[in-house]
Amino acid sequence: MGMQVKHLTGLRNLDAAAINRVLDTAEEMRSVVSSGGAKLLSDKLLATFFYEPSTRTRMSFEAAMHRLGGGVISMADAQTTSSVQKGETLKDTIKTIDKYADVIALRHPDAGAAQEAADVSAVPVLNAGDGTNEHPTQALLDFFTIREEFGSLDGLTVTLCGDLKHTRATNSIALGLGNYDVKLQLVSPPELRITDPIKEAIEAKGRATLSEFDDVRDAVPKSNVLYVTRIQKERLAQPEDYDRYKGSYIVDREVVDLAEETMLVMHHLPRVGELSEDVDDYPGARYFQQPFNGVLVRMALLALYLDRA
């Protein structure tokens, strides 16, 4: 049995059962990988259509498809190399790709592009990041890593720190965790808070509790997971505030040591100074610890959305 909904546009549309299903399937994919030649999707073709270059996410999708025996058509730089350049709209492009691919992984600079594609696509669209909206596969991979550590997502205190207004991955993380009994602590400068529609969507699910902080040091002590994102100077109302904010949103060893119990520290590289190198030896540091999880989760998604899991 596949997924209830046909497309993965964001975690906004997934409930706890669906997310657990993805994570359980990803776990099963371990044995597929260790046993070698899976042929589960040997008759299927994935199109990776990336309007923004992202080698890592694209390669992870493609590795996942290869691991399941499927084929890949890769459009690494759709903006400059495809007919997109000739002014073709996203909808028209998708209506062409869905004729020869069985599933599409789409990365696009515009928020809402995944939904726009899903509206017209005859085959499943998996959102590989759309503007400042969502990055659901990244969030699922993080949940997989967290669950591996704690056994469950329920009962955790999770802190998201940094630019929560423009970071699509934290949107997906927050929306996904909204389905669980999680204390969600949001740390950001006032002008970079998570947006109201996201907050409302989480509150509507009625499971997670939200609280906001101005200083990461206040949120860390009770945290089980600390998620660090970058703040771009140019996105602040007053760029000169950056230096003033620095102390409150920069995570170093002193900050993580405030945690009462060892917490997981997560980050999507590359980092530019918001997570200092002295955290690398912290026992809870998980950025880059389990990157193969990304392939397992994407294998699970491909199998589920193609109805083969």
Partner: peptide
Amino acid sequence: AIADGVVTEVGRLGGL
């Protein structure tokens, strides 16, 4: 990037 004998990621990995 390689860990435990296996490629972990391919891409721009600044600061790793």
